[in-house]
């Protein structure tokens, strides 16, 4: 059995594969690097597959917390693992958009699934899941509700600040001036979409475009992004664990 662990900034994911590359279990724990999240994710995945630690032949770790995780045989970056996982699930994929809790990545693949180019956001919360989390807090809703709220918009409202901290002040001012929460939520999604589209333009977007990462579960975000980049976006099944899946595939190949 082969284990892939993806330790992000805000969540930990684990995937277990067998020799035939069949997924035996997946786990997502909503705490990331520096917490017990990785251990819990691995324990959950093992439990679901009815396995114990010694059943694992090889482990590959990826993600922001990969360097400090000492229970893996090998560490590989999340760029390579997302590329590998996405190609496995969608062999026609040429562009992968991954929006995580703390960073955003655009990865371009060639016809054989090899990474041609990639780009990441700079060290800033703009254009990441963190931006949406901050917006959800101001709008007094859960991160899971933000998408539905946004889809009920009736009026276009722009959030012009790129910086998350400035955007927070801007949104508070707009709410104080009577703006509807639904419109603000939609504005927040468009703000992230704008940022990601700008990033994607740096390396160019080619069909088929797929989206991975936790933010891919947000339907409003996917719609805004598709509109901004001018391409249809396919959300991969198991989008949240694509990085861990890629890591597990590397583990099988190792």
């Amino acid at each position: 059995m082969f284990l892939g662990v993806d330790i992000g900034s805000s969540s930990s994911k684990a995937v277990i594969l067998n020799n035939q590359r069949e997924v035996l279990s997946t786990a997502v724990i909503n705490t990331g690097t520096g917490t017990r999240g990785p251990e819990k994710a691995v324990a959950t995945a093992l439990e679901q597959a009815e396995l114990i630690t010694s059943d694992i032949e090889y482990t590959v770790v990826t993600g922001y917390g990969r360097i400090t995780y000492d229970k893996a045989d090998r560490q590989i970056t999340e760029i390579s693992c997302h590329g590998r996982g996405a190609f496995f699930l969608a062999p026609q994929a040429k562009t992968i958009i991954d929006i995580g809790g703390q960073d955003a990545k655009i990865i371009r693949l060639d016809n054989n699934g090899r990474i041609e180019n990639f780009v990441m956001n700079e060290k800033c919360a703009a254009g990441t899941g963190r931006f949406l989390e901050v917006m959800a807090r101001i709008l007094d809703c859960g991160i899971g509700e933000l998408s539905d709220l946004s889809l009920r918009t009736t009026k276009e409202l722009a959030i012009s600040s790129t910086c998350t901290v400035f955007a927070e002040s801007e949104v508070i001012s707009q709410l104080a001036a009577g703006a509807a929460k639904e419109d603000v939520a939609q504005g927040a999604h468009r703000s992230v979409a704008n940022r990601i589209a700008g990033l994607a333009a740096r390396i160019g977007v080619r069909q088929k475009v797929v989206m991975t990462g936790g933010v891919a579960l947000n339907a409003s975000m996917v719609a805004c992004l598709a509109q901004e980049i001018g391409h249809e976006i396919t959300v991969l099944p198991m989008s949240q664990v694509v990085g861990a899946l890629g890591a597990a595939l590397y583990a099988v190949e190792s």
Partner: peptide
């Protein structure tokens, strides 16, 4: 420098 580390390592893997 962790983001830079990821970029450099990804580039080499690429």
């Amino acid at each position: 420098l962790e983001q830079i580390r990821t970029r450099v390592q990804s580039f080499i893997e690429m």
